[in-house]
Nucleic acid binder design. Structure first.
Lengths: 210, 210
DNA sequence: AAAGGGGTGTTGCAATTGCAACAGTTTTTT
DNA sequence: AAAAAACTGTTGCAATTGCAACACCCCTTT
């Protein structure tokens, strides 16, 4: 249970059992390609990835499946929707591999109506930080999508990647940037030809380095 | 100070002064078109609009100024960036009119290192909800930008508007959807001709009603 | 009355993109 | 080993979009 650290960080282990109960936490296993929830679900729970990984998929009218984001161990998903008890989540959550998830009700953590458990305040604080990071991550995505050309989107995306290795394969990258895979491939070749970027598989280097 | 309600909701007025001190809150007035902060600023504070309104602007390489979002009385901005002490905010914040802002340090609210003031826990809770709403708002924007054609972007945007009246004028809408204003205008006329939507100024009606 | 600023709609043209069809590669399954 | 599935790159063509230039409207200022 190592990767839940960020959620429980700073909370002594002896308080965890009571908190789990308070959170209405449930542990679940899913197989590869299994759906944790489908678009349109009401009142989804919030999830933390314990092991494996998942992806949030938004189905478009034209049949394309945009990749909202990927979720890795220690990261959460669905927090905002669970807190606001949204009537219909706008995306589906699918496991990319065999995956273990901790589902819980964040409203129970935020609720001040019952007397707080030891550590609950700290848990709330951790939730705030996790949501903050999600917001920043989403902001980076908006930055990418705000660009009008594939080239700018790509450069903006690469600027946000510290390491040379990106988290997506080609078709995933196209779905994340919401562009046609073939057009992305064409533009990549063009940029390489112009000396703007160097890449091999998932490893990218821009002209400036980094 | 009515519109700050969501931030201070549920907290008795007698606790406000101590909380203000704890938050390092400062009240500021700005004129129309004044900048509250510029893109690239470090460690920005978080703001709540007391009166007036502001907009977050992202400057693109090509000179276009995308409209990240608008902020109205009672709403916050910059929360995630302030909480994470981001080194360079990716957008500027500019007042759309004469505006009063309450600037504060959300880290002081979230900090558990000092003994909490009365009401601080509730304030933290309110912050979490405000950030949640921002996240959902951002999610709607990503939904719009995930669409590849102006028509789909527009329909997605309109679906998210309960009332018939939208919050933007034409050029603001184009900047929000990250499309050329003229192309937007052209597409609007086309959709009207096809009977897809009816509109007059800021008032829109889609084929299905709503 | 004239001038300036800001918002809106129209349109021709060039550039970018999506689409589709295809081929090559690697990986997984049978 | 053969077959199937998945990923990647290429390219012609049609559709959409951005750009630029223009005209019109409304309002405020000079």
């Amino acid at each position: 249970m190592v990767p839940v650290l960020s959620l429980f960080s700073g909370i002594p282990a002896e308080h965890h059992p009571a908190l789990w109960a308070r959170m209405e936490a449930v542990r679940r296993r899913y197989e590869r390609h299994a759906y944790i929830f489908l678009a349109g679900s009401a009142n989804p729970k919030c999830g933390v990835v314990l092991s494996g990984s998942a992806e949030l998929i938004k189905d478009a009218a034209d049949g394309s499946q945009a990749l909202v984001e990927q979720v890795f161990p220690g990261e959460i998903f669905g927090l905002a929707f669970a807190l606001r008890q949204v009537a219909a989540v706008p995306f589906s959550c699918r496991c990319r591999e065999a995956t273990e998830i901790l589902l819980f009700n964040p409203r129970a953590v935020a609720s001040l109506e019952q007397p707080p458990c030891p550590g609950q305040q700290r848990l709330l604080d951790n939730l705030l930080l996790l949501l903050t990071d999600k917001t920043l991550q989403m902001q980076r995505k908006v930055d990418c999508l705000s660009c009008r050309t594939i080239r700018e989107r790509l450069l903006t995306y690469l600027k946000g990647c510290r390491e040379g290795e990106i988290a997506f394969n080609r078709s995933e990258l196209a779905r994340y940037l919401c562009v046609d895979r073939c057009a992305l491939s064409r533009e990549l070749a063009r940029m390489r030809r112009e000396g703007l970027i160097v890449f091999d598989g998932r490893r990218f280097t821009t002209g400036e380095g980094v």
